[in-house]
Design a protein around this nucleic acid. Structure first.
Lengths: 340, 340
DNA sequence: TGCGGGTTGGTAAAGGTTTTCCCGCATGCT
DNA sequence: AGCATGCGGGAAAACCTTTACCAACCCGCA
């Protein structure tokens, strides 16, 4: 297809021929791996330029045993929090000479397995994983960790020992429950939890903390999605709920809750107070603006770079890095601190 | 780092030794490239399984001249429309044996260049590009198109001939302007355009069509982001605007517009009517739900698969595929068809 | 029995690069 | 003048796989 324009690939051999030197010299010039006489270097440089030489990274990786790339596997790119993580991981690595390649597992264990196997087959130098499921993903994560430096991000399949970067979900949900306890007029308004089934570590930690703070509160569980938040709220209202403080464990769920509340004619925060988690970009544009827990995403992704780079140098040292960043509570209009 | 657990990579040679056959036989069994006697095949299979053999895809790609992968380069993963496209492209390819790797250019021409060069160096079999800039990205797109089958998606750098898959933006914006003309009480409410600078083809096509329909309408231009939508509306209100039909060229901008309107005490759609474009997931959860133009994303990504697969077979035929899908207008509460 | 054809296994080349090893040359020192 | 040193260049091995080519074998058939 349009094959006519496809240029024949120019190899290092061609550059060498044009410059009148050996391929070793070309390689040394291009990688600056050893000093080369100025005149030869110039000849090589201009030859490469004129031919439009583009090194075959497969050959290089095969020879060097490293591909100068890492893989990032997210459960779902349509979840804005994961999209933000992906963007930030890329950004944090953009100043190193390591390429970041993103794959989506589409919340499917089989696809997760295939994606990891492909990454390993392509010999990525590191793998950043957000496991789909706290338990079921363990085998997949283990496979990765046996071959390459592996960092679990946000979610942890704790059955397998790897590096981990995330936020302190218990602490974050603790901030929420304190806030809710302080703000909600508990004598009149019930507290309700709407969140994901605890199949991911983040979800479980948040739910656990909430349950410990409000043992008798009603809980509605589903998935990390707008739709679930909307449907859950729908159900609650149908059950007769008319006022409550609704604690969710993700902004996208909170947005669904708010939308459903509005569509039934309720006011937020007057009738329902709502809190989120993650502080994704849209949350401060929600109506009303959303109280949520902000994760220090850029610090998290920066520390991933540190771990990866450190693993290249000190390939020998043992021990896994576990970094849990403290999130912060951002109080906005959906659950105002002052009495409404 | 935790290097102790790193398993030594098992090569095809090891499998062959364990099974007592030659490496050629192992390759033939694993790829089913030629029949192998049942007993040998079983020996090879179990040997591979026991050793946990994971083929080195670099070696394979180097030899075969194809990597069984394609690259997808988006300008910005935090833009939910691009995230959705990325997810859907992955999903559409998940039934072929082609891996999709996503990269973000972070709206930066230099990063866009680097990403494409890396993809080419890794010998992807195809490249799906959403160019950052209609004009400035042309050189980058051209570089790609000279080496590999290239498909521009959503945005088109028309200076370079490639395949293109997108939606008919003029038609889509035409649906909006008809709707606005029909709905808006033009005698009282002005029509205002808030959208991105026409540096991408989609943006330009949408703006052109709007400008042709409402030549004298005010226009505020910025970037494809929540923040711009909010700031633009802020400015309009400061300038004294109290009621209008605000046409935007992206849902994320529309969300910013609505948020700003609300925060200044205005009602949507009573004071301001707002329309979006793209129909990203959040738009039907916005408050009020957002009138927008839906792109048939799954059809678009499916046709990308078709183009890529076709280019593998009929490598010879010439001509570029250009598919512009008709979008549809989705009228919701932010600009109701009935009089408010 | 001899031969041809089809099937199956192995050997080796090829794909593009980096890097080790070695050699020649020039320089500096005694 | 002679020797040690060091710098820069080239040849070739190595990375891992697929595949073209060849050899061997088995079968049936004349």
């Amino acid at each position: 297809m349009a094959g006519s324009q496809m240029l024949p690939k120019v190899r290092i051999h061609d550059v060498a021929a044009r410059a009148g030197v050996s391929i070793a010299t070309v390689s040394r010039v291009l990688n600056q791996s050893r000093p080369v006489a100025p005149d030869l270097r110039d000849r090589v440089m201009s030859a490469a330029l004129e031919l439009g030489y583009n090194a075959n990274l497969l050959g290089r990786a095969l020879r060097q045993g490293r591909s100068h790339s890492i893989g990032l596997l997210v459960p779902d790119l349509e979840n804005p929090f994961f999209a933000t993580l992906a963007q930030q991981v890329s950004r944090s690595f953009s100043h190193s000479n390591i390429d970041v390649y993103v794959c989506s597992a589409d919340n499917d264990l089989e696809l997760e397995h295939r994606a990891i196997a492909s990454f390993l087959g392509r010999r990525v130098d590191g793998l950043v994983l957000i496991p789909c499921d706290e338990n079921e993903s363990a085998a997949n994560v283990r496979m990765a960790s046996l071959s390459v430096v592996t960092i679990q991000l946000d979610r942890l399949a704790k059955a397998v020992k790897t590096h981990y970067v995330g936020c302190d979900n218990r602490y974050g949900m603790g901030l929420v429950t304190s806030h809710v306890r302080e703000v909600a007029d508990l004598s009149r308004q019930p507290v309700v939890f709407v969140g994901a089934h605890p199949t991911s570590s983040s979800g479980r930690e948040r739910l656990d903390t909430f349950a410990k703070a409000f043992p008798s509160a009603q809980r509605v569980l589903g998935s990390f999605s707008f739709e679930f938040g909307r449907d859950a709220m729908e159900r609650l209202i149908r059950q007769g709920l008319r006022a409550a403080t609704v604690v969710t464990d993700a902004d996208i769920i909170a947005l669904g809750v708010i939308a459903s509340g509005h569509s039934h004619g309720f006011a937020v925060p007057d009738d329902f107070r709502v809190t989120g988690f993650d502080d994704v970009g849209v949350s401060f544009l929600a109506q009303p603006t959303l109280t949520t827990v902000r994760q220090p995403v850029d610090q998290m992704t920066d520390s991933i770079v540190d771990i990866v780079l450190a693993s290249f140098d000190g390939g020998g040292q043992t021990g896994y890095v576990v970094r849990r960043f403290k999130p912060t509570l951002v109080v906005r209009d959906s659950s105002p601190a002052h009495t409404v």
